[in-house]
Nucleic acid binder design. Structure first.
Lengths: 245, 245
DNA sequence: TCTGGTCTGCGTACAGTGTGCGCATCGAAG
DNA sequence: CTTCGATGCGCACACTGTACGCAGACCAGA
């Protein structure tokens, strides 16, 4: 009974009191919905996206979205495939396969960090997406590794990108935590450091490892870049051993 | 008004009609709550766990749980740390560091596949957990890699376990999808195969890769084991190059 | 010009969710 | 016996995804 929070609902419907349909707004479309959803996900994180809020941002009711998108999960799949287009994979005839793979891996990581919800959705739904952009991403990778001469390109791809996904997931989670605290990464690290030191006090090796890390904590982003590059080089070295000479 | 779905709510409260408190049930406790939560997560997946259902399984109301656990997120952290105890890391004085690391990696993967929600929560909250079991897991890893002679053990650990986490995340997501379909892995693969073939028809390299995979699709679990082992060997080979001789 | 039919948006409603609050009950301590 | 802190619980609130059916917009054909 007290639930009518909306504007005054005319008791007698009248044509004259009826508002004209907005003609200026370009109308709802799947593309616009996905685009706006990505914007909200980037800005406020994955749990801030609700169909009602998304509808409000498009001057629409929540349930109107369902004319263009079957379900929220489907919307997330569309969003994932949309950002998959941002990942750049060099062409198969690149002269230096290591440089090319490094480029592709870095591009994946950059995309995952620009859209920190990406890895979450991937972890939830797996890579059974089959969206067009994800398909061409995979196809290009396969072309690249085949041209590089790997006898089992899919195994090599899985090795490299499992590493890339694992590292990106961890980094994305970290960045999300930092962002939620509303601080820069350095500030957050500085504030976290005493606690971390205290907690790791009882553990010899952790304390040692943490001391060396803390020394370089002035530029955490740089540290992450280096860490990623180091691990990637490790994987690529291991793969190089499997290239037929 | 029509909301009283519960048992008959006596209009006149009477001492005689009041039920005695159950003395046989061992009462709520943080340990019991976490244990039951893990059981529900394992059985029905992450989105099937709600505080109300969890309470019901413990013969308790939903809000009773909040006497022992501050929030649902905190409960998930406790669950994660609980299963972290299942990961086995060989002692630092193991004679063969590769075998020891392979054992630790395999144990992590097995745990992640036994509890497919683990990687999801890790991806959401990052490794800033600092729970006791997770700490000793990290400590033992650090000890192992230090004893193996790595000059920068934490970088080596990050390289290996980014790979392990990435692969486990993907596998866990896949297994969750399979489980939700209510089929065995082989059945699911068989049913998926025509679609996959059709979708990858327009992509040369994907089609090629898929053909070789499909040939071995009789035993998908074995295939996953091999894939994991292959990538792990790649990473360990790369790391071995960095060991001082 | 009128008539249908299809497409799109929306208001309402339902069955859930996490959790804050205050009361009822308990075992133990004084 | 009284008092007190710990524990469980019913209720309520704000919120979620989405099924359903109605209303207006547009367009094809008569």
């Amino acid at each position: 009974m007290s639930r009518s929070k909306t504007t005054d609902k005319n008791p007698i419907p009248s044509v004259w009191a009826r508002e004209r349909r907005r003609a200026d707004q370009p109308a709802l479309s799947r593309e616009a919905i996905v685009r706006e959803a990505i914007a909200m996900l980037d800005a406020d994180g994955i749990e801030a996206l609700s169909m009602r809020k998304l509808g409000a941002r498009l001057n629409a009711g929540a349930t109107s979205l369902y004319r263009h998108v079957a379900t929220k999960d489907e919307l997330m799949e569309l969003a994932v495939d949309e950002v998959a287009a941002e990942i750049h994979v060099p062409p198969a005839d690149s002269p230096d396969w290591r440089a090319a793979v490094t480029e592709a891996a870095g591009s994946f990581r950059a995309t995952a960090l620009r859209h920190p919800w990406l890895t979450l959705v991937l972890g939830q739904a797996g890579l059974a997406y089959l969206g067009p952009n994800y398909m061409t991403f995979s196809e290009r990778l396969a072309a690249l590794f085949t041209a590089a001469g790997f006898p089992e390109p899919s195994r090599a791809i899985d090795a490299v990108f499992s590493y890339v996904i694992g590292m990106s997931t961890t980094e994305a989670a970290w960045l999300t935590t930092v962002a939620r605290a509303g601080e820069t990464e350095s500030e957050f690290v500085a504030r976290l450091l005493p606690t971390a030191r205290q907690v790791s006090a009882g553990y010899d090796h952790l304390a040692a490892a943490e001391a060396t890390t803390a020394a370089q904590a002035a530029d955490p982003a740089r540290l992450r870049d280096d860490k990623f590059a180091y691990g990637l080089d490790v994987v690529l070295d291991g793969l190089a051993l499997r290239l037929p000479k």
